[in-house]
Write a protein that binds this DNA or RNA. Structure first.
Length: 422
RNA sequence: GUGGGUGUAGUUCAGUGGUUAGAGCGCCAGAUUGUGGCUCUGGAAAUCGUGGGUUCGACUCCCACCACCCACCCCA
C-alpha cells in the first residue's frame, strides 16, 4: 500500500525524464513560434466551473470527477480537462481587455478522471493544450491543427489522421437535434440502453456510439453537416479549404461529437491507428460560447488538449527512440581512500567548468570505481592520488581508446576540460 | 461501471499437494598486491499479492479482497 502509487497513476522515473523533457521542449518551442505563451492554472478549481463549463450531462462530470469538500466547505474538483481553467483565468485576468487574439498554452498540466485504467488511460494524466481567444475565423482552428501536427511530426510520429466535423451553433443545432430525434424517435427500440438515455439529454452522442445496432441506425440518420446554418456552413467550408491549402490531409467524420458540451462549430480529433477504432491522441474544437457562459464578454475561442502519456505510448509503439543525455563525462576516481576529498574537489571544479563529473560516494575500491564509471558510460576517468599526485600530475584515461595522458595537477580542471570537450 | 487474464527474488520467468522455493539478467565482492567493458568463482536478495478455508501437510486446491494487464464503456 505505502509503496504503491494510487491506482491509475504512474511515476515518471529518472530514466525516462529525458523523454518528457524532449517532448516539452518541442511543445514549448513550436507553441512559441506560433505566438502562444504559457499559462499555468491551479490543479483544482471550484466544482461549479466544470459543471457549467464541461457540461453536467457529460460522462466526465457525471461519473469521472475527483470532487471533494475542502475544510471551508467549498466543493472543489481536481481538473478533469484543461480548457475550463484556462477560460476562467482568461476571464479573471481580464485578458479580454488586451489585444486579441490572446493565445496561450499549458504544458503537461495534470488532469484527473476517475476511470478504470488501461493502456493509454490513467486517472492522472498530463495534457498539453493550446487555447486561442478572440479569433472567430477558421484560421484559428487551422493554425492549431498545423502547429500540433508540427509538434507530433518533430517528435517522429507517423500515420496520424485528422478528423474534423462541425456540430453547429445554438442557431442551427437545435434544429438538427429535432431532426435527429424525429429520425430516431420511431426506432427507439433499436437503440442500446445508454443511447435511449442519451436520446433526451444529449442525442448528439448517439452518433458516437460504438454499439453495432446504433451504428447501423445512425448510418442513415440525417447529418448535421446538411443542416448547418449559413454561418456555420461557411465556417466549415473555409476551414476545409484552408487545411487543403496548407497541405494537411483530413477526413470529415460527421460522427465525431466530443464528450464536452462547450464545443460549437468545429470539432476535431487526431487519431492514431490502433485496433479497429484507433486511439485519440488529441481532441479539440471551437467553443464560441464558453467565455460568455463563464462570466466573460462574448468571445470566440478554440483550442485542443493532447495527452502526453499517449504521445509517449505511440512513440514507443512506433519505435521512435530518443538518445538519453550523457550522464557523466569525467569520473574522478580516488586511488586510495585518503584521496577521496581531493577527487571531490577536482570533480566540483570540473562541474564549475560545465562538465558532467562524478566522484565516489560509496567508499569503493579503485576497481569498483572503474566498474561504476563504466556503467555510467563515463567518457574519461581522472585518477587522483598515488605517485602521480606526488609528481604533481593527474592521469586522465580515455575509456574508449584506453589512452592515458597526464595533466598538471595545478589548474587540472581547465586542462581536463580542454581535452574532454573536444 | 461490465467482462476476461495475471500476481513466485530488483527484473524476466521456472516450479508443484509433501521436508532447507530455483534459473537467466541485474546488484555486490573476489580471481596476488593502483585500472572498466569479456570470462570464472562466490555472495546478498522472495513474509511465493493479502486474508480466510480445505488438508496430517498448500507456493501448489477453494473463496474473498487487493493490485496489475487487456477488452467494452468513455476519452487524452
Amino acid at each position: 500500500m505505502l509503496t504503491q502509487a494510487p491506482k491509475g497513476t504512474k511515476d515518471m522515473l529518472p530514466s525516462e525524464a529525458h523523454l518528457w523533457q524532449k517532448i516539452e521542449a518541442v511543445m514549448r518551442r513550436r507553441a512559441a513560434l506560433s505566438g502562444y505563451r504559457e499559462v499555468r492554472t491551479p490543479v483544482f478549481e471550484h466544482t461549479e466551473l466544470f459543471l457549467r463549463g464541461v457540461g453536467d450531462t457529460t460522462d466526465i462530470v457525471q461519473k469521472e470527477m475527483y470532487t471533494f469538500k475542502d475544510k471551508g466547505d467549498r466543493s472543489i474538483t481536481l481538473k478533469p480537462e484543461g480548457t475550463a481553467g484556462a477560460v476562467r483565468a482568461f476571464v479573471e485576468g481580464k485578458l479580454f481587455a488586451d489585444a486579441l487574439p490572446c493565445k496561450m498554452y499549458y504544458l503537461n498540466n495534470p488532469v484527473f478522471r476517475y476511470e478504470k485504467p488501461q493502456s493509454g488511460r490513467y486517472r492522472e494524466h498530463h495534457q498539453f493544450g493550446m487555447e486561442c481567444f478572440g479569433g472567430k475565423s477558421p484560421s484559428v482552428e487551422a493554425e492549431l491543427i498545423s502547429t500540433l501536427l508540427g509538434i507530433l511530426g518533430e517528435l517522429g510520429l507517423k500515420g496520424l489522421s485528422v478528423s474534423i466535423n462541425s456540430i453547429g451553433c445554438p442557431e442551427c443545432r437545435p434544429k438538427y437535434h429535432a431532426a435527429l430525434k424525429e429520425y430516431l424517435g420511431g426506432r427507439l427500440d433499436q437503440l442500446c440502453e445508454t443511447c435511449r438515455e442519451r436520446f433526451d439529454r444529449n442525442p448528439l452522442r448517439i452518433l458516437d456510439c460504438k454499439e453495432e445496432g446504433c451504428k447501423q441506425l445512425v448510418k442513415d440518420a440525417p447529418t448535421i453537416l446538411d443542416m448547418l446554418c449559413d454561418e456555420c456552413h461557411d465556417h466549415f467550408e473555409t476551414l476545409k479549404s484552408m487545411l487543403t491549402a496548407r497541405g494537411i490531409p483530413f477526413t470529415v467524420n460527421p460522427h465525431i461529437v466530443r464528450g464536452l458540451d462547450y464545443y460549437t462549430k468545429t470539432v476535431f480529433e487526431i487519431m492514431v491507428t490502433r485496433g479497429r477504432e484507433g486511439l485519440a491522441l488529441c481532441g479539440g474544437g471551437r467553443y464560441d460560447g464558453l467565455v460568455e457562459q463563464l462570466g466573460g464578454p462574448a468571445t470566440p475561442a478554440a483550442g485542443f488538449g493532447i495527452g502526453t502519456e499517449r504521445i509517449l505510448l505511440e512513440m514507443s509503439n512506433q519505435g521512435v527512440t530518443m538518445e538519453a543525455p550523457e550522464l557523466c563525462r569525467v569520473y574522478v576516481a580516488n586511488i586510495t581512500a585518503a584521496d577521496n576529498e581531493k577527487a571531490y574537489l577536482l570533480c566540483q571544479q570540473l562541474r564549475d567548468e560545465g562538465i558532467r563529473a562524478e566522484s565516489d560516494l560509496c567508499a569503493r575500491s579503485l576497481k569498483a570505481q572503474f566498474k561504476y564509471a563504466d556503467k555510467l558510460s563515463a567518457k574519461y576517468i581522472a585518477l587522483v592520488g598515488g605517485e602521480e599526485l606526488e609528481r604533481g600530475v593527474i592521469k586522465l584515461r580515455n575509456m574508449n581508446t584506453r589512452e592515458e595522458t597526464e595533466v598538471p595537477a595545478e589548474n587540472a580542471a581547465a586542462a581536463i576540460a580542454e581535452i574532454v570537450n573536444k
